[in-house]
Design a protein around this nucleic acid. Structure first.
Length: 423
RNA sequence: GGAGAGUUGACAGAGUGGUAUUGUAACGGCCCGCUAAGCCGUCAUCGUUGAGUCGGUGCAAAGGUUCGAAUCCUUUACUCUCCGCCA
């Protein structure tokens, strides 16, 4: 959520930045400023009246104490009269505040100055590429065939148990998942992230805090009887650990990592995008999250990008890093880097990580603050990134490393998987 | 699922109808050869003012009673203890 004080003082800038994100309703800025003015005006009126009433009430107490009952009765009547005026005033105030709140919530986060102005995924900026694209033998096949060949995942039975998009990992496939999760967590904790294993369902306040509500409601599975949402990413429960907290400055930066399954309805997806492991409703992901001093958040973003990049290098996968354009960024982000790995058999780039700086957009909703050097409470900045999402990593590992003898795993995974090759 | 106790500022912890006491930590200042101690101020949040001005709100949340509610009443959430059920 944008901060009203900032909007008030930087109306022109806010409009200009919103246009980079292709936010249609620029006039909403003016509307919000007008509503804010109205709210503050009504506040002054109602507070002045309340001050009078408080003073009168206090006087009543004193008069009663002195035994001057008649005087006290007069004062009582005075207060009673004010009361109905106040009632009306506070009704208009509440209405105006609600309208203001409802309007502010519609604003996406403002994009950082380095965000390219484009609208579609094609206009994302390629920052750099790394790793080597393999030259596959002529009989190379996509991962969904390799999965069958080595009996790693049973999509049909997963569909029987639940529905399509709920993979049933099996035997070597299940062990590979566990190996990757363990490796990613070890790699993250070695870099100073504290490991968490959070609840997989969250309440409404948490979903609102990270911005899934109200913007992405349709993307989450909802357990209506209890009002809980299945998490679409570990970002939601983990960032909310610090909701409504004032963090000690000594504890900043807060660095957290968590493995969780992620649940996404992915309504509207179809075609080759959803083949095999390309897009599923339940998948495993290891996430990194940081809460940092506002002055440092862009340095930390670069640090997190390098962290993920190193991981991909260790996995020996060809990758590229994209800086997302305004139109392709998420509602809550100020700057996002996407990581894609090259799936050699599909000849396709697949997104495996998204690293974002949310600045104070999430922390303002969650009231995650710290006391700065002057002893003043201030919002922290929040960042997160996948490190890493498993299914597409698995797809690429299988496809890019296929040989007649089996799937050759990168050395970092040998000990975790317990073998150098999947046969 | 049942019963009881509880929820007060960053933390600790008083306050049973008259407008949130005190301590600790933190921050700023004074003092000081240095350190410690001590002293003064700030220390939930919002509005307002030329201003360190003035005021509002705030005691888990929402509603109610009252001139006045942390305090009384109702509902809800959460925590703890015991019982029940259970991996």
């Amino acid at each position: 959520m944008l901060q009203i004080g900032f909007i008030r003082q930087n109306a022109a800038l806010v409009k200009e930045r919103l246009s980079v994100k292709h936010f249609g309703d620029v006039l909403l800025v003016d509307k919000v400023i007008a509503l804010d003015e109205q709210v503050r005006k009504l506040k002054v009126e109602s507070e002045t009246l309340q001050a009078e009433m408080n003073a009168a009430s206090k006087a009543i107490g004193q008069l009663m104490g002195k035994g001057e009952k008649e005087q006290a009765e007069l004062k009582k009547q005075e207060v009673t009269q004010h009361k109905s005026t106040l009632q009306q005033l506070s009704e208009s105030l509440n209405l105006a505040e609600k309208q203001l709140q409802d309007a502010i919530i519609l604003f996406p986060n403002l994009p950082h100055v380095s965000v390219p102005p484009g609208k579609t995924p094609e206009e994302n900026e390629i920052v750099r590429e790394g790793g080597l694209k393999p030259s596959l033998p002529s009989n190379a096949v996509p991962h969904w065939e390799l999965i069958k060949k080595y009996d790693l995942v049973d999509f049909e039975t997963g569909a029987k148990i639940t529905g399509s998009g709920f993979p049933l990992y099996k035997g070597k496939g299940a062990k590979l998942q566990r190996a990757l999760i363990q490796y990613f967590l070890d790699y993250n904790t070695a870099a100073g992230y504290t490991e968490y294993l959070p609840p997989l369902m969250v309440n409404e306040a948490s979903a609102y805090g990270t911005g899934q509500l109200p913007d992405k409601e349709g993307q989450m599975y909802h357990a209506a009887a209890d009002g809980f949402y299945l998490i679409p990413t570990a970002e939601v429960p983990v960032t909310n650990i610090y909701r409504d907290e004032i963090v000690k400055e000594a504890d900043v930066p807060v660095k957290m990592t968590a493995y969780t399954p992620c649940f996404r309805r992915e309504a509207g997806s179809f075609g080759s995008d959803v083949r095999g492991l390309n897009r599923v409703h339940q998948f495993d992901k290891v996430e990194i999250i940081q809460l940092v001093n506002p002055d440092k958040s862009y340095d930390v973003l670069e640090e997190m990008v390098r962290h993920v990049e190193t991981l991909l290098n260790h996995l020996q996968l060809p990758y590229r890093i994209l800086r997302l354009c305004g139109g392709d960024m998420s509602f809550t982000s100020a700057l996002t880097y996407d990581f894609e790995v090259f799936s050699a058999a599909q000849q396709k780039w697949l997104e495996v990580s998204s690293v974002s700086n949310f600045e104070s957009f999430q922390t303002n909703r969650m009231k995650i603050r710290y006391k700065n050097a002057e002893g003043k409470t201030q919002l922290l900045h929040s960042l997160n990134g996948s490190s890493l999402a498993l299914p597409r990593i698995v797809a690429c590992l299988l496809e890019n490393n296929q040989t007649d003898a089996g799937i050759k795993l990168p050395p970092v995974l040998h000990a975790y998987y317990g073998n150098a090759i999947i046969r």
